[in-house]
Structures are given as structure tokens and as C-alpha cells.
């Protein structure tokens, strides 16, 4: 397996200046993400997991430290369209059809019409929404809308997929189903995925690497390399190995909490 490092963070610090004084969102964050990894960031709210993802995306600028994505600064990587970003809400434009929404990044990036149509069909197949390209967002369920937003992030073939609690607003049955689909999609496309969540089973089920974070200041308290195989049926969640990893994640979360009392 190719162990090329594509995202590197060294001594990353980020402080937000707010009206209530400075907020230390990230402190001394060090992390390497290898090509093809599925990395989950887990932790309570305020632990900086979303902020770190936004730093990778070049949507926030760290106050100190270094971060590189594909050997570039995050801002350069953003301009080079190195990643697709999936937000917590699907955020589809209500005035565009599903196909039209997926075309949005393609139009902005200047793909020609024929290629746009071809890519829309391909990513709709990938997220199991074949035939829905002419529907409007309000005609789809929440889970289907979120799948469409994943298709939108996949459409321009970026190697990296950044996902910020994409299934956080969905119910557990839909979420299980989408988790399973996401793993299949990851296996087929060989993307590198960084995934923010606050669900322990979700993090353990999906990830090759779990980054446990703790708040005030936001920092990494544990990095767990998963020993689970890449091929994961849903019932792997009942195996002793899975439960053991989940335990370690829970311990990491607890340790992060105990020292801020």
C-alpha cells in the first residue's frame, strides 16, 4: 500500500478574537494523513474538530504552525480545487434540479457541457441516485439530499473529500445506510476522506484512523489506528475488535474531559 502523506499539520495553533476575548480553538495540533486514509475527527462540541477541517480546506487561517495539503498551503490547494467539501446541511440550491446542483462546481470550474452531463450521471450512479437529476431538492428526502451533496463534492474528481458531520442531522437508520454506502464509495474511488463526527460507532465503523479531540483549548488527545479490515459489513460493529476500539475512543474522550474541571 502506498503510504504517501498528503496532509500534514505541524504545531498548529488558532485563536479567534471574539467580543468576549480570545478563544483558543486549536492548540499544538500535529497530524499526518496518508493517501487513501479514512480519518475521523471525534470530540465534544468546541474541541476544534470542525475548525481543523476548515483549516485543511483553507476556510480558516491558523495563527501559528504549518499545514500542507498535497504539498501546497491550504489556500493554494483550495484554488487548485484539491478537495470536495460536504457540509452538515446538504445546502442544495432550491432553484436548481439535482443535476443542476451537481453541475454547479463543474460550471464554475469551466467544464464543457458534454463533460458536465457525463460527470453528473457518473456521480449520481456513485451515490445511488440514478434518474433523480431532474428532480428538485424539495422532492427528495433529507438522506437523499445529503447524498446529492456528496455527489456534488465528488463531481470534479478531487482526491480529498472533507466531510463536516454530513449525517449529523439524519436519523440513525438512514445514517447506518449512508455509512455503509460511504464505505463502498470510498473503496471504489480510493479517495482520502477526513470526516468530522460526534458519534463513536460512526467513527469506529468508518475510519482507518480515529483522531480524538478535546476542548478548551482544542487539541488532539489520542490518535487510534484502526485494526479493522478495510472490508466492513455492518455487523462488524458487534465484533470484540470493534468494541475494543470504541472503548479506547471513549476513554480518550473521557480523558480529554477530566482535566478541564
Amino acid at each position: 500500500m502506498n503510504q504517501q502523506t498528503i496532509i500534514t499539520a505541524r504545531n498548529l495553533d488558532l485563536t479567534f478574537e471574539t467580543n468576549d476575548g480570545p478563544v483558543h480553538a486549536l492548540k499544538d495540533v500535529n497530524l499526518d494523513i496518508n493517501k487513501g486514509d479514512f480519518v475521523s475527527f471525534i470530540g465534544p462540541s468546541g474541541c476544534g474538530k470542525t475548525t481543523f477541517l476548515r483549516c485543511i480546506a483553507g476556510l480558516e487561517t491558523p495563527t501559528a504552525g504549518e499545514i500542507s495539503v498535497n504539498g501546497m498551503t491550504p489556500d493554494e490547494a483550495r484554488r487548485a480545487r484539491a478537495y470536495g467539501y460536504v457540509f452538515q446541511a446538504a445546502g442544495l440550491y432550491p432553484w436548481r434540479t439535482i443535476g443542476g446542483n451537481i453541475k454547479l462546481p463543474l460550471e464554475i470550474m469551466g467544464f464543457d457541457k458534454a463533460e458536465q452531463a457525463e460527470r453528473v450521471q457518473r456521480v449520481l450512479d456513485l451515490v445511488d441516485l440514478t434518474g433523480f437529476d431532474r428532480k428538485f431538492p424539495w422532492q427528495l428526502s433529507g438522506g437523499m439530499q445529503q447524498r446529492a451533496s456528496i455527489a456534488r463534492a465528488l463531481a470534479f474528481d478531487a482526491d480529498i473529500l472533507l466531510m463536516d458531520e454530513p449525517f449529523g442531522a439524519l436519523d440513525e437508520i438512514v445514517r447506518d445506510h449512508l455509512n455503509e454506502q460511504l464505505l463502498q464509495l470510498w473503496a471504489r474511488t480510493e479517495k482520502t476522506i477526513a470526516f468530522v463526527t460526534h458519534s463513536i460507532p460512526e467513527a469506529v465503523y468508518l475510519s482507518t484512523k480515529i483522531v480524538v479531540m478535546s476542548p478548551r483549548p482544542g487539541r488532539i488527545s489520542d490518535v487510534i489506528e484502526s485494526t479493522l479490515p478495510r472490508e466492513r459489513p455492518l455487523d462488524i460493529r458487534d465484533s470484540s475488535e470493534f468494541i475494543e476500539i470504541a472503548h479506547r475512543v471513549r476513554d480518550g474522550l473521557r480523558a480529554g474531559h477530566s482535566d478541564d474541571v
Partner: peptide
């Protein structure tokens, strides 16, 4: 802000943001 961030991840220009997002949203 989420919709504006989405356009930033595409590295969209201001005029693309106007025609694709702001103008239709204001209809």
C-alpha cells in the same frame, strides 16, 4: 455563510457567486 463557504471551496469568483447564488436567491 455555509452557502458562501461552499462557493469558496470551489474557488469561485465574485461574479460567479453573484450569478449562481446571490441573484437567484434574491428572486
Amino acid at each position: 455563510s455555509m452557502q458562501l463557504d461552499l462557493l469558496r471551496t470551489y474557488s469561485a469568483s465574485k461574479s460567479q457567486g453573484f450569478w449562481a447564488l446571490r441573484l437567484p436567491a434574491s428572486a
